[in-house]
């Protein structure tokens, strides 16, 4: 089976805009699932509400498309009630960190055996481009017309601090790395969190000087900073510019997981 056999062929065309980064993340996730050799009968996809959360609807496995922000809570119920199922959550930055922030940190604390893939487009895509908890300071959105005055969340820092067993960040440019990260997440017992920065040409790019789809992908490429290099810079007392994106594996540990058959 290759990853494209995981798609429902009776559900096309999909709703995503041309050039949207979500598709890349779905492909990477399904490639990782496929590499694991998991079957569609044992794998369940869960999501909240948002463009990103539409992903499970395109996949030929059992899937639960839930309410805004609550995907992880629903997934916790599935995993606890049947630990034999492999449960993957797709979420967006608003879904995960705004309305669902509390469920996110508690799931990390419980270290429940889920793999959560967040498509972070730094904006509310589905509702037309409002600011989210990861909208960079100064960035424009329909609710931050003068530039966001608030600091953005470091989603990976949050997951690591709250106790997740595996935490990694890449972007839609880093396809190979992203597949590997999701795969490691799937392999790791306990809570795995993979943040994928994605371009949203329609609602983020257009307002924030990424006129072409490729402009934002180029930005991801040129502003990605490997975590090892970032650490070295910090040791040397060098300042990491605010617009750099630290990528790589940001936490890997072995706290006892919940929801794993003993």
């Amino acid at each position: 089976m290759s990853y494209d056999e995981w798609f429902r062929d009776d559900r096309l065309p999909h709703i995503y805009c041309a050039g949207c980064g979500n598709g890349t993340v779905i492909n990477c996730t399904l490639s990782a699932v496929d590499q694991m050799g998991w079957t569609k009968d044992e794998t369940v996809f869960v999501s909240g509400i948002g463009c990103s959360s539409r992903a499970p609807g395109y996949i030929v496995a059992d899937s639960l498309h839930t309410t805004h922000g609550r995907a992880i809570a629903f997934a916790t119920g599935i995993k606890m009630a049947n630990p034999d199922l492999r449960v993957i959550v797709f979420t967006g930055d608003g879904d995960l960190a705004a309305i669902g922030g509390n469920h996110f940190i508690h799931a990390c604390r419980r270290n429940i055996d889920l793999t959560v893939v967040c498509m972070n487009n730094m904006i509310y895509g589905m509702t037309g481009g409002q600011g989210s908890p990861t909208t960079p300071q100064g960035a424009l959105s329909t609710t931050t017309p003068y530039g966001s005055a608030e600091a953005a969340f470091d989603l990976c820092g949050l997951a690591a601090a709250a106790g997740a067993n595996y935490v990694a960040r890449y972007t839609s440019y880093h396809v190979k790395e992203l597949i590997r990260a999701v795969r490691t997440g799937l392999e790791t017992p306990g809570f795995s969190f993979i943040e994928a920065l994605v371009q949203c040409p329609t609602n983020f790019g257009r307002r924030n000087k990424f006129r072409q789809v490729m402009d934002q992908i180029e930005f991801f490429k040129s502003h990605a900073l490997l975590v090892q290099k970032a650490d070295r810079m910090r040791e040397e007392g060098k300042k990491i510019p605010d617009d750099m994106i630290v990528i790589g594996e940001l936490a890997r540990r072995n706290r006892p997981p919940l929801g794993v058959r003993k």
Binding site: R70, A81, H103
Partner: peptide, 25 residues
Amino acid sequence: VFIQMEDEIAGIAAVIGASWTGARA
């Protein structure tokens, strides 16, 4: 399985999730 969730929103969400595995919840 008993699980104390972080709030009632999560409580009913987990129950619905569990029910989809076929369990009475």
